[in-house]
Design a protein around this nucleic acid. Structure first.
Lengths: 123, 123, 123, 123
DNA sequence: GTGGTCTAGACCACT
DNA sequence: GTGGTCTAGACCACG
C-alpha cells in the first residue's frame, strides 16, 4: 500500500486516496477482507489529518467498497468488479465530455478535436 | 455580443464568459480597441452577479486579452489570434491527455477509450 | 426551520439534523427548491461546529434529498416522498427488531413483549 | 455455560455476554457463589479478545451481579431475581418507547407501527 | 456572502 | 490499539 499524495493538486486529498484504493481493488492488489491501514496510521504516513483519511474511508464505505468495523478496522468489501469498471467508465466519460465541450466552446471543429485526441492516444 | 450562460453547468459562470469572449476575439467578432459591455450592463443582461462579470474581465486582463481603463470601460487588447488558437489547443490537449491518462490508470483499453470518445463526440 | 439539538444524546448531532430535515421534507414543511440555512448560519444558530452541519448536509446530498450549489447554498431536491416513507419505515423496523431481540435475549416471552408494546402504544 | 456470540451483530460483544449472564442468573442457571469461566478461558472459547470479556465482567460487577476476587475468579453475587426481571423489562420498555416515538416523529400511524411490530415478532 | 477542504487536537465507545 | 464524533479556526473557489 503505497499512496502518492499531491497536496498542491486541485484534486482533494481524500479523493486522491479514494481513487488509488479503487484502482488497487480493481487491479486485485486489494482483495475481499483485506484490511486497510488504520486511519491514524495512514494519516501519519501521509502526513495529513486523520479526518481527511476518515473522509476517504467514509466515502468508500458509502459506495460499498469497504466495510468499517468499530474498534477493529476498515476492510475491503466483497466488490462487484464489473460495477466498479462501469463506474470508472462513467467517470472517464464525464472527463472526456468536459474536454469536448471545452473544445467546442473554443470554436474548434469536431474533426480537429478528434485529430488531437488520436494524436495523444497514439503518441 | 450574445452570451449563453448555463448556470447549472459544472463550468463556473465566469469561465463561460471568458471562453466566449476568447472565441469572439479569435473569430474576429471582437477586434482591437472594441469596447466590452460594462460590468453592470452585462450582469443585468445575463441576470448574474456583477462580481462574476468583474471576475471574468479581470481574468481576461491578467491574460492580456483586454485592458480596463478606470472610469471608461474594458477594451480588447492587441492580440495575436494565431497564438490564441494555439493556446486554446494546448489547453484542450492537456484536458484530453489527463482524461486518457485516467482511463489508462483505471486499466481501460485504448480501444474502449476511443469508442467512448467517439460516442460522446457523435452523440 | 427550528431545530432541536440534544448534545448529550447518544445520537450524533449531524444525524439529529439529518432526521429533522427528513421529517420536514416528508411533512411538506420543506419543498423542492427551498433553500436550507447556510452551513455557517445554522452552525451559529445551533452553537455547533460548521463541519457538523456540513456533514449533515453532505449526508442528505448523498442520499439525494438536497442539492448543494457551490457559492450559492443547499437546496431541497425533487424528492420521492414514497421512497422517503419506505426508508423511514425500514429504520423503524430495525429499531423494533433490535428491541424485540433484546427482549428475547432477556428471556422475556413474546406475549410479554407484545403486552408491553401495546401498553406503551396505547398509554 | 454456552454463550452465543454474533460478531457481526450491531450489539457490542461485551453486551451480548452481559445479557446472557443476566439471563442465566434470572433463570437460575447461575446461582450465588457460582464461579464464572475465567477471562482467558472464555476469551479462547469465544475466540474474542480477553479485554472484551473483562469489560463484560467489569460491567456486571459495577451493576452488582458478580464479585471479582483478585487471583481467584469471578463469582455470582447474591441477587434479587425479581428485581433483575423488572430492570430488564424497564430497559426493553425504554427501547420500545424510543422506537414508537421515532415512528410517530416520522408521522407513521400507530396502526402501521403495530402492524410492523407484529410482522417482526411473528416473522 | 456561499460551499469545499484541511488541520490539530480532543473525548468517547469498542476490541 | 481501533473507529466515531466534534471543535475552532484556517484558506480556497465561486457568486
Amino acid at each position: 500500500m503505497n499512496f502518492i499524495i499531491n497536496t498542491s493538486s486541485m484534486i482533494p486529498i481524500y479523493e486522491q486516496i479514494v481513487d488509488q484504493i479503487k484502482v488497487c481493488i480493481r487491479d486485485g492488489k486489494l482483495k475481499e477482507n483485506d484490511i486497510l491501514p488504520s486511519v491514524r496510521t495512514l494519516s501519519k504516513e501521509l502526513k495529513i489529518s486523520a479526518l481527511t483519511v476518515k473522509k476517504a474511508y467514509d466515502s468508500l464505505e458509502s459506495e460499498g467498497f469497504v466495510i468499517t468495523v468499530h474498534g477493529k478496522g476498515t476492510y475491503i468489501a466483497a466488490t462487484n468488479k464489473e460495477l466498479l469498471l462501469e463506474e470508472q467508465k462513467k467517470e472517464l466519460e464525464k472527463d472526456l465530455d468536459l474536454a469536448i465541450q471545452k473544445g467546442r466552446r473554443y470554436g474548434i471543429h469536431d474533426d480537429d478535436i478528434r485529430e488531437l485526441f488520436e494524436l495523444i492516444l497514439e503518441g
